[in-house]
């Protein structure tokens, strides 16, 4: 099972001890300041040097911030397009990611939850945020036998299902919906740290057939299109996909987030590098 490392740039508000910097005071390495012993009666933390220097002559106690756990949530788009199978099935990639996310959250000591949506929230797939060690298995079991269908409108409701506390939200989708909708979705999720995981397949873009007649069907709308594939159209197609990628990046940037593109198999290390600030997957 793959594991990736993640971190956030804000302080977690969780009460539970964890890995992330938090606003909670307690046992920890991070020094905050001094307080009179009368208020914080923990004699183990008496800072003698500071007390001696104290003009008031009070005994001062060192205050530290503790490290807290953080809710990690996967918000999964289960619209029909996510059922696309090209070079590999998108859903396999999704499952691999959910497994990795859940596993990583457990290893980091964070709570893990799963929310899936197509036209509405898929309640039977919903896994409320939990610290249970079995969360990964539960999530994967619930994804078993699920067939992506319908559109992506349900994602907009998802914010009501997310934890109230600020969480790390992996928004897993192919983002095959209008930019307006993406914009409002990101607005809705502004309270959380959103990491867009863009699941695309090589067959959607680069690996197009060179020539032939194709009757395309859109699984979400049921629409058909006949395409006479040829060199010119193929080039325009690839350009259009690249343009879409650029548009998505721009839209994410305005919402102060960077997308993580999965064009083939999911690689946990690449995601770790993403959290380290490496931009290779955003382009």
């Amino acid at each position: 099972m793959q594991e990736f490392h993640y971190k956030v740039h804000w302080r977690a508000r969780g009460q539970r001890q964890g890995f992330h910097a938090a606003t909670t005071q307690g046992s920890g390495m991070e020094f905050v300041g001094h307080a009179p012993l009368s208020g914080y009666s923990d004699p183990r933390r008496i800072d003698i040097r500071a007390s001696l220097a104290s003009p008031t002559g009070d005994w001062l106690v060192r205050l530290h911030r503790t490290r807290a756990a953080l809710p990690v949530c996967v918000l999964l788009d289960l619209s029909a397009s996510m059922g696309f199978a090209g070079v590999r099935r998108k859903f396999d990639v999704v499952e691999a990611f959910v497994a990795a996310a859940g596993f990583s959250a457990r290893r980091t000591g964070d709570a893990f939850g799963l929310i899936a949506a197509d036209d509405t929230i898929r309640e039977q797939v919903w896994l409320p945020v939990t610290h249970a060690r079995s969360a990964v298995q539960t999530a994967l079991t619930r994804l078993e036998g699920v067939t992506p269908s319908g559109g992506s409108a349900g994602l907009l409701e998802a914010l009501h299902w997310l934890p109230r506390t600020r969480s790390l939200v992996f928004l897993v989708s192919d983002f095959h919906f209008p930019l307006d909708m993406l914009s409002s979705l990101l607005d809705g999720l502004a309270h959380h740290e959103v990491v867009p995981i863009v699941v695309w397949d090589g067959a959607e873009a680069e690996r197009l057939p060179g020539f032939g007649l194709i009757e395309l069907a859109d699984p979400e709308t049921g629409r058909h299109r006949t395409v006479l594939m040829r060199a010119g159209l193929r080039r325009r197609w690839i350009e259009r996909v690249a343009q879409r990628r650029a548009d998505l990046c721009k839209c994410f940037a305005t919402h102060r987030t960077r997308p993580f593109f999965v064009d083939g198999a999911f690689e946990a290390d690449a995601l770790t590098r993403y959290f380290l600030g490496d931009d290779e997957h955003a382009r």
Partner: peptide, 27 residues
């Protein structure tokens, strides 16, 4: 009637560039 046969799914038709020739050929 556009009934399913011989079709291949493609995730999002909006990604397919508009092509009058193809449309005409389909019809």
């Amino acid at each position: 009637l556009r009934r399913d046969a011989d079709t291949v799914n493609y995730s999002w038709l909006a990604l397919v560039p508009p092509d009058p020739l193809s449309t005409a050929l389909g019809w």
